[in-house]
Amino acid sequence: MTTTTSKPEVGHGTAAEKEKWLRAYRQMVSIRLFEEQVNEVYTRALMPGLAHLYSGEEAVAVGICEALRIDDYITSTHRGHGHCLAKGASPDRMFAELLGKEAGYCRGKGGSMHIADPATGNLGANAIVGGSVGIATGAAFAAKNLGTDRVAICFFGEGALGQGSLYEVMNLAQLWKLPVIYVCENNLYNEYTRYQETTAGTILGRATAFGIEAMSVDGQDVRAVNEVAARLVNRARAGVGPAFLQCDTYRYSGHHVGDINREYYRSKQEEQLWKTDRDPILVLAKWLIELSYADAASLDRITAEVRATMESAVKFAIAAPYPNVDEVEKHVYA
């Protein structure tokens, strides 16, 4: 049982390492700019439904998914764009899904909260808070039963700590030593309510009560997240059992795009502090420059390239056709 905050390893200066962290940087920028476009498209009333932005939490999804293989599984949440991108989804098909177009990952039938993609092991985002804890644990059960060494990651917000099914499956996972890692993204708020008002005791204590290896990490530091994730993933892959990782993080925007006036539940100063002092992209950029893995100009170039990709993804999605109405009755049954 470990409940300490892990320390990131310092760089070893290898080319592979440089490439890895530049890739992580690009991934985080991709998520940030993807969400920037979502905000834009949403406020222009081009996107139906709801949009829950992942901005601010990029280091969690990227740090974890960088420790995974393409055939490892993830389950995601209503705030799931970051998880999908970090696991390898392509922005154009994601945007198409967000706009309800046939070219989308789910042929337009899932939308923002349900992106799923077998090719990248994405079992699906879930709009029921805590709704995918069983699915992730079941994927780990199948991996173990079928003798593969795949690992399942279950992403959820700290709001899901209120769901009893989480405790049922954590008990099962530890009894059966399943290769599943429960990743709790603690962004401090369940919708419009501070998590302290909804959460008795400690977060990690919930996992350690089952004897599950549990720890917390600075979710704004992608290297720290990745280092601990790699350790837990290897451990799970080797058959040692499940783990629980609390990632302390923050969402920059409202609960969803329309949540504008939010001073009744959190202050502007608090938001600003996270953005200036603990921004995951700035934190990594600073480190990359310190180690001469990049300079300001090369990072700007990455941002410009990503921005162009996101803009063309949006264009693709806007131009893409809606599904034919006869699609409505397809895929109810396999």
Partner: peptide, 21 residues
Amino acid sequence: DTPISEAGFTGVAVGAAMTGL
């Protein structure tokens, strides 16, 4: 054999069915 966790083990079955069992 499972603990008395109907939601939990039914959820596990859903995920296991999606991934090959």
